[in-house]
Amino acid sequence: MTEMMLDIRNLKVSIPTDRGLLNAVRGVDLQIAKGETLCLVGESGCGKSLTATSIMGLLPRYAKVTSDRFEMVGQDLTTKTDAKLAKLRGRDVAMIFQDPTSALNPTLTIGRQLTEGVMRHEKLSRSEAEARAIEMLDRVGIANPAARLTQYPHGFSGGQRQRIMIASALMGRPKLLIADEPTTALDVTIQSQILTLLGELQADLGLSLLLITHDLGVVAAIANDVAVMYAGRIAERAPVAGLFAAPRHPYTKGLLAAIPVPGVTPRGSELPAIPGRVPGLIGALRGCAFRDRCAIAGAECAHDPVPRISAAQGQFIECVKAGEVTA
């Protein structure tokens, strides 16, 4: 049995709005084994970012978060206290965000921002913390790291800032790294550099990585396992090769078909778009959330609960028509 770095069952996040309760995450199961990369992929509003922020315990107080099981880096947090989570955060679990420009404080030096956390959490002295900061900056490919500790974020390019963000996340020597769209704000040439870096770090440090993205290209490049999220639930979970070679859920199929692939998709041909739009998540949702947009939906798709069909190694899809899908 491999050691689980993250094991969440039936995670639910609800946010009260003036139009009613927004059920943004509606029962998500996530498992990440040690040293694995799980990509959580989905479109805007599917709840993928909220899932990540709730794992980090960074949601505002008015958000209601429940789960049947919540274990992270070997600790049971099901009946978690904020204090317990806060202790894990910045040490065993770290997060990097989409926009490195706004995630770094422009008025503090890089050195200060990198060392502050570990000096507090691990009671390191300034020189010890700085030594580690230099090590981490070197690790993420910032040249001449010692000299750059005294510089401010504006002296770095976007790609370098994201490297610094990653260095900052590594400062507490985490076992689990959560990255929310870490390359979306970057140019493509920089994106592949950052993804390469994340892959190397993961291999070298034995990190587990939860990467949240909307970009299936990123998923294909870096994931071991993929969880496709739709309307607050995981529609399909599969190893990356299997998912791209033979997607089983109609939504996953639709997503993959909608992307033009140079050299494969005939130029100027009509792309098989998924019609319609994501359903609103305020209030209760009956049956399969995708059925209004699904080509093979039938009457049985409106029934609760949508059956989950599991296979080996944690693979599953949630679709009542799964038999017909695989055929």
């Binding site: 592949s192 892959g199 290209g217 294909a220 870096i222 090769a241």
Partner: peptide, 15 residues
């Protein structure tokens, strides 16, 4: 090369 395709076989381009 840096354009990521939805194909796990392609992997990450060598930078």
């Amino acid at each position: 090369a840096a354009t990521l395709l939805p194909d796990p076989q392609a992997g990450l381009p060598e930078q």
